[in-house]
């Protein structure tokens, strides 16, 4: 287990002691088995791989280090509750597709294969490709899986997770991403200035 994952898990654990009972338990169907609020551990690993593709590590850390998966997971039991269904189904569709087409999980594919997969997903071409490939492989897909792939392996999911990744990496750390202001440091922006004692407090007369 590498260090970033370890520190992330530790971070989530600390979080769950503070506010966990509020955020974690009520909506999490896999609460006993998962380190996350919404995601299963398997989904968490997949999301880590996808967000790292969207904002990869170069001379600066990428989305995984910035805890973007933690950001998304946190929003999915908060303001993004309405996106739970598309995440659950689309993530499952991605793994089914990868199993059928490559006999591997998404995160086990080579880096460039992952990129190609996401490029096709963005262009809304991946479902057809996977179905064709599985037929060519002599590994045809069951009707139920076919339906999941056709319904959920779509570009709108890619746009969503792309936007959420950008938010998690470049937004305020208070929402669980942008670990240690990494994106601000990369851009060369100071974190927000600390306000002095002048700090404006609204009161009933607004002064």
């Amino acid at each position: 287990m590498d260090e970033t994952i370890y520190s992330r898990r530790k971070f989530i654990k600390t979080l769950s002691i503070g506010v966990g009972s509020l955020l974690l338990l009520p909506r999490c169907t896999f609460s006993k088995a998962s380190d996350w609020r919404f995601f299963t551990n398997e989904e968490g690993a997949l999301v880590d791989a996808i967000v790292e593709q969207i904002i990869p590590t170069d001379e600066w850390p990428g989305a995984k280090y910035a805890m973007v998966t933690n950001f998304i997971d946190k929003q999915l039991v908060g303001p993004y509750t309405r996106h739970q269904e598309i995440y659950r189904n689309s993530l499952s569709a991605i793994q089914i597709a990868c199993k059928k087409a490559f006999s591997k999980k998404f995160e086990e594919l080579a880096w460039d294969e992952q990129t190609d997969f996401l490029v096709s997903l963005e262009k809304n071409e991946i479902a057809t490709k996977v179905l064709d490939k599985s037929v060519a492989n002599g590994n045809p897909i069951r009707d139920a899986d076919k339906a999941i792939i056709e319904n959920w392996l779509k570009s709108n999911f890619f746009s969503l997770i792309r936007n959420h990744t950008m938010q998690g990496f470049y937004g305020s750390p208070r929402h669980g991403g942008n670990y240690k202001f990494v994106s601000y440091r990369m851009i060369g922006l100071d974190p927000y200035p600390i306000m002095g004692q002048n700090r404006y407090k609204a009161s009933s007369n607004g002064q």
Partner: peptide, 15 residues
């Protein structure tokens, strides 16, 4: 719109 190139653009051109 994403990937290494997008990140590089952000870093090089924000200012």
């Amino acid at each position: 719109r994403w990937g290494a190139e997008h990140k590089k653009f952000q870093r090089e051109n924000y200012k």
